[in-house]
Design a protein around this nucleic acid. Structure first.
Lengths: 252, 252
DNA sequence: CCTTGCACCGACCGATCGTTCGGTAGCAGT
DNA sequence: ACTGCTACCGAACGATCGGTCGGTGCAAGG
């Protein structure tokens, strides 16, 4: 029905593995003093202490980036703390040194996504000019933010509402949606959008197109040069979404 | 970011409920001989036995319809056999009288979705005429099937690849996708689709729009009369998707 | 009346869940 | 040398997981 890359190479069975000591990812690790953890390199600019060299241990944020990757591969409910510890290369109990628990990881990730998305609505171009132009701007920028914060936004889009955190996330997401829906309604009132499709339905279809980018875009494949080989840059995809959504697939 | 109706009214906490005997849904049930199970009424035409009256106990299919509803509310991984037994109004062990286990329920549901979707590609109008017309037909019919088989297709769309069944489902779904992608490529070669958006990307955005219907459509709200109050019928939504995807949101 | 078989049950299984606890090695500051 | 702190560990917690087992009540067939 849709596109997606690899299934997460399969744990064979996901219950009762043959050799329970076999590591999932970052091979045995002697646990010597200076083993660099698995998923560093995307941590925020290290503050204080030794400024550049050595960045060794986990911070809540660097651990988060590992956790979010696993959440997206297996689903939040399908991810155990054991999975996270294997992926991070530290023991299960060590995770609790950095964060309160599994749900805090989810909350941090979703917060980050929501903050980035709401920031789009505060950009000047989202509040000035004709409604249809503001709507196009928000569409373009939302796609760009989605791609820049891909794993965090992806997690947000998949929330089901099973915990308090998830219910809160769904509520804030609905807020964002309604802000955009108002733009659509205004643009329709201006006569800039086709009248034969209801504004609420149009909003939903627009978001359907935008959000679907999270289903197939993989940043490692995007190395600028577009075309059938390399992936596309963020701006190129955003432009294609705007063109397709507003002008349609068909030639005229 | 998108639309959706209610979060599933919250179990408060989802671990360690205050009163472990409190039922989740179909109140206590004295377990008398003629308690009618929770989710009947959408079972296939009852074969054999007493033809009309009495339809009491579960069949694999009627149990499936209950299970799929819960799967969609809580997510597959977030649903325990205990959740299913509460929703069905029978004990956990009784479920195993009808199906082999949790994963068989998933497999049956996904099979049903895939069969319905692939059937669209075998319709005459999907193979005759100009590629762009065939593509429009497949788009329209896929939306209609998605709405008719909503819970089953929704489940398919959310599969993550954690088990063998899920990997198989993702593979078959990719097949469907590629069949449609070929139609897009052909229509682009005919000059009927805009040349400034790559065919692969166009396919993905088209599916993004189609599949997003599963995120917000709720059949109980669709009582024919369209407009701002009642929902829309299947054919009306499908028509709107085709119009929006092929002609775009903007007026010309 | 007796047997058969279906739909269902409570009790229980070992495994795994998220989380807690009591450590310990190594470094910085004094 | 001692203290305090950070980042980590293994072992274990009670709860819950998907699934199995040996029944039980009852309608239908003989």
């Amino acid at each position: 029905m849709d596109n997606f890359p690899r299934p997460p190479e399969q744990d064979a069975d996901h219950t009762l593995r043959a050799d329970p000591t076999a590591p999932d990812e970052p091979a045995a690790r002697g646990r010597g003093p200076f083993d660099v953890p698995a998923g560093l390199g995307d941590a925020p600019a290290s503050i204080g202490r030794m400024p550049t060299v050595k960045r060794d241990t986990y911070t809540p944020d660097s651990l988060l980036s590992v956790a979010v990757r696993v959440f997206n591969e297996r689903g939040y409910d399908g991810t155990s703390m054991e999975h996270l510890s294997k992926a991070a290369g530290i023991s299960k109990s060590s995770i609790y040194h950095h964060v309160r628990g599994k749900e805090e990881l989810l909350r941090r990730a979703i917060s980050r996504a929501l903050d980035s998305l709401f920031a789009v609505l505060d950009e000047p171009a989202a509040g000035e000019g004709r409604a249809v132009a503001r709507l196009e701007h928000v569409t373009r920028r939302t796609v760009e933010v989605l791609m820049a914060e891909l794993p965090y936004v992806t997690l947000l889009l998949r929330v089901r509402g099973n915990t308090d955190t998830e219910v809160w996330a769904m509520g804030r997401r609905r807020e964002f949606d309604q802000r955009v829906a108002e733009l659509v309604k205004q643009a329709a009132a201006d006569g800039d959008l086709r009248a034969d499709v209801d504004a609420r339905l149009a909003t939903r279809l627009l978001f359907g197109m935008i959000n679907s980018v999270a289903e197939w875009y993989r940043p490692d494949r995007a190395v600028s040069g577009h075309g059938p080989e390399g992936g596309d840059t963020s701006a190129e995809v955003a432009e294609a979404v705007v063109r397709t959504a507003f002008a349609g697939l068909r030639t005229h």
